[in-house]
């Protein structure tokens, strides 16, 4: 096989693996938008909290990042509930600008608190658990675990959404808020629950992302993930968490595939071009299928 194809194959495989984590990273954003119609501009800051959680659990207590996921989830539930009941609950029916400013401010607040507590340095750690040797390509096992964890989380969320009592209630609110209220569904309570779970998923995904960024943990790391999550959410149809998950896959594949392709062009720095490719795909998709790949309500 020519070396280019081997590289492409390897990159696509890695893209699919990272894509699952991207998908999980975006499910929380979509859930919050789908249920509350609120765009969480501070999304990336919650990812940063999850990354620090994994970092400190590993470096201080030797707890592997996979086991950090449940910790991060609980921290996320707490942060989400705190943010919801202090701020968001009052703003649910406010104009978009109000909620954009509120989520943006909360994100900045988290970043500044992180800088105050842990300083502005770049941090990272290595959790090495061996590799899986496939023909032509080697996949680090920790990344494969992150992939499996993301897929499992998505599956659990899916089953809860389809079969669980509160999951059904949340779907009912997404379909028709007044109808849901008439069924005796506590709409405010369900808003709080979906918001907290959305944040919890985001924080947990931040812990898994640490396995892909060996030295990339710092207070302002979230910005680029906010951007990526927005692209992925639009790919998936904005208000559908499942759409978001598949959008993540596609984004991971495009990002990593583009890396290989741009590497062929002399004089081009392939890494910086991957964003270009990702946003180009977004533009094309918005032109031909503005409702997202799975439609506006793929849930």
């Amino acid at each position: 096989m020519p070396p280019f194809l081997i590289a492409l194959y390897g990159n696509l495989l890695n893209g699919a693996i990272l894509g699952a984590v991207y998908g999980m990273m975006t499910m929380g954003l979509s859930l919050i938008f789908g249920v509350l119609r609120i765009v969480n501009v501070g999304h990336g800051a919650f990812i940063m909290v999850g990354a620090y959680t994994a970092f400190f659990l590993f470096t201080l207590y030797g707890i592997p990042p996979l086991l950090a996921v449940p910790f991060s989830f609980i921290i996320g539930m707490g942060l989400g509930a705190l943010f919801f009941y202090t701020v968001i609950k009052r703003l649910i029916d406010s104009p978009e600008l109000t909620t954009l400013l509120a989520t943006f401010s909360f994100g900045v607040l988290l970043e500044e608190v992180a800088k105050l507590l842990w300083g502005p340095d770049y941090r990272g750690f290595n959790w090495e658990v061996g590799s899986l040797h496939l023909p032509f390509v080697t996949i680090p096992l920790e990344k494969l675990y992150a992939f499996l964890a993301s897929v499992s989380m998505a599956l659990i969320l899916y089953i809860w959404f389809k079969k669980g009592r509160s999951g059904m209630a949340i779907r009912a609110i997404m379909e028709d808020r007044e109808g849901a209220s008439c069924c005796g569904i506590n709409v405010d309570g369900m808003y709080g629950l979906s918001f907290s779970i959305g944040i919890a998923l985001t924080v947990a995904s931040g812990s898994l992302l640490t396995l892909f960024i060996p030295v990339g943990i710092h207070p302002y790391m979230g910005g680029i993930y906010t951007l990526k999550a927005f692209v992925i959410a639009v790919l998936g149809g904005l208000s559908s968490p499942w759409g978001a998950f598949f959008g993540g896959f596609i984004f991971g594949l495009v990002e990593n595939g583009a890396y290989s392709l741009f590497g062929l062009v002399p004089g081009l720095e392939p890494f910086s071009m991957t964003y270009f490719a990702a946003f180009l795909i977004l533009l094309i998709l918005l032109l031909i299928r503005p409702e997202g790949l799975l439609g506006a309500n793929g849930g």
Binding site: A172, E175, D176, A180, C183, I185, N297
Partner: peptide
């Protein structure tokens, strides 16, 4: 008509008995 359009008739009815 505030039905849950994406859900089945049965699911709508079950949600009516939510409490």
């Amino acid at each position: 008509r505030h039905v849950f359009a994406g859900m089945t008739v049965k699911e709508n009815l079950l949600l009516g008995a939510y409490r």
